[in-house]
Design a protein around this nucleic acid. Structure first.
Length: 429
RNA sequence: GGAGAAAUACCCAAGUCUGGUUGAAGGGACCGGUCUUGAAAACCGGGAGGUCGGAAACGGCGCGGGGGUUCGAAUCCCUCUUUCUCCGCCA
């Protein structure tokens, strides 16, 4: 959601931005908003004037009653009744117009950063930089689910019975590895100065509506039967919701938090769940970073945040690259975004393990998150990024640590979280 | 889950019973000064207040959210949310 003032003052910029995102069908929205806005402001002026009159009359009625001029007061009352009748219609009209404006404003994309590469869709995303060698060993690496099963670490069959497709039982050392990555990620971010936070795993509909569109909500969120509650799809939902409607003193910025949560996703309309694997599932766990900062600091934070994820994966001996989202692939709320992708030695390609985004003040504007400055209150900037999501990231860790004898070497930094275990060995047959 | 009490601006807090110049008393914080080597404290003085419209003058909205009654609502009614106390239940 952009500032409507930008549309008033620089409609051209907004239109250029829409073109950059290849959403020509939205171009007409800009002029529609301009017209509606004009209408709304005019209407407000008329309504304000009428209300001012009503307020004045009401005060006068009060005084007349005090003076016991009942007759006169009753005459005035009648006038106010008439004013109120007029107002009723106008207020309805105003609400209608404002709703129409809002509907359109929600569709107009945020102004993207000048540095964002122009492209239509994800095929035109741009690799920025590789970190570590994308190694391909001279022995074959099995499918990650097979590796896990051979290690006695994964049971999707049972999960199918209890919960259906898209769920899993992690067992033994693999379960412990999963937990170890999250614990290590937590400590890694705490060391970077982030505040550790465990948020609610369910949120109310008003918060959900604040953080995503209706279509997204339908495709992602699980609703709790008989309650106004949804399972979160990421801790970002609760972490940003935490600040809804809040005014934060500029001196308290930046707020840098690292949050843990399980994440639940319906994955409706996505590429579908993998039958056997752990790549796309209904339930996973994630360590996240969320930052609120002054708009002027946002880009610096953005660069810091994705580089933390890179550093994190490198410390696990996983090779990664950063892939910048091109204009057409960038979600409408985002100013700039990149994925961190991990190397899969088996598939010999990179796959997404995290996503870093700066939303400018769009999210804050939508949720009413402001900062108090010497020059008045203004909307602040919000950013979010994945540290690690598991079990998806286990795919990279397991494949990267896979040995020709079927064992998996545990990255050094995770060993303390595994009771000192260095290698996970296949079950003895 | 049951029964009570409460929610007022950045913070604390009056006003709610008995509806009417209430942008909303009084503090604190804030700004200026006196005092002090400096600071704190104390004392004196001061302006501003959130948001929308407006070039401005000014006006609208706004007392947890939403709705209602009324000529007029912080004040009365309904509803939701949250907090506190008590009871019940539970890791």
């Amino acid at each position: 959601m952009i500032d409507i003032k930008v549309i008033r003052e620089n409609a051209q910029l907004v239109k250029e931005n829409i073109k950059k995102k290849f959403q020509e069908e939205k171009l007409s929205l800009v002029d529609e908003v301009r017209e509606l806005d004009e209408k709304a402001r005019k209407l407000q002026q008329e309504i304000d004037a009428l209300r001012a009159k009503r307020n004045r009359f009401s005060d006068e009625i009060g005084l007349l009653f005090k003076d016991k001029k009942i007759e006169e007061a009753n005459l005035k009352k009648q006038e106010v009744v008439e004013i109120n009748q007029q107002l009723l219609e106008m207020e309805e009209e105003e609400a209608r117009v404002k709703e129409e404006i809002k509907k359109r404003m929600l569709l107009i994309p945020n102004i993207i950063d000048d540095s964002v590469p122009i492209g239509r869709d994800d095929s035109e995303n741009v690799e920025i930089e590789r970190f570590g060698e994308p190694v391909v060993p001279n022995y074959e690496i099995p499918y990650h689910a097979d590796i896990c099963e051979a290690l006695g670490g994964l049971d999707k069959e049972s999960a199918g019975r209890t919960s259906g497709n898209g769920f899993y039982y992690l067992v033994g050392d693999i379960a412990r590895l999963h937990e170890a990555t999250l614990a290590y990620a937590r400590d890694f971010m705490i060391d970077k100065g982030f505040t550790y936070c465990i948020p609610p795993f369910m949120i109310r509909s008003d918060v959900v509506e604040g953080v995503m569109s209706f279509a997204e909500m339908d495709a992602m969120m699980y609703k709790i039967e008989g309650e106004d509650l949804y399972l979160i799809g990421t801790s970002e939902h609760s972490m940003i919701g935490k600040f809804k409607g809040q005014l934060i003193d500029e001196k308290e910025l930046p707020v840098a938090m690292t949050s843990y949560s399980p994440c639940f996703r319906k994955e409706v309309g996505s590429h579908g769940l993998e039958e056997r694997g752990l790549y796309r599932v209904h339930q996973f766990e994630k360590q996240e970073m969320v930052v609120l900062c002054k708009p002027s600091d946002a880009m610096e934070w953005y660069n810091k945040m994705w580089s933390y994820t890179v550093e994190f994966f490198r410390s696990l001996d996983v090779s990664v690259r950063t892939l910048e989202c091109c204009s057409g692939d960038l979600a409408d709320l985002k100013v700039k975004s990149c994925d961190v992708e991990a190397w899969s030695p088996r598939q010999q390609k990179y796959f997404e393990v995290g996503s870093c985004s700066t939303l400018g003040d769009a999210q804050a504007r939508r949720l009413g998150i402001r900062m108090k400055t010497e020059n008045g209150n203004q909307f602040l900037s919000t950013l979010n990024n994945t540290v690690i999501a598991s079990p998806r990231s286990l795919i990279a860790i397991i494949e990267s640590g896979y040995q020709s004898d079927g064992s998996v070497v545990i990255p050094k930094v995770l060993q303390p979280y595994m009771g000192g275990l260095e290698v996970i060995k296949p079950k003895q047959k």
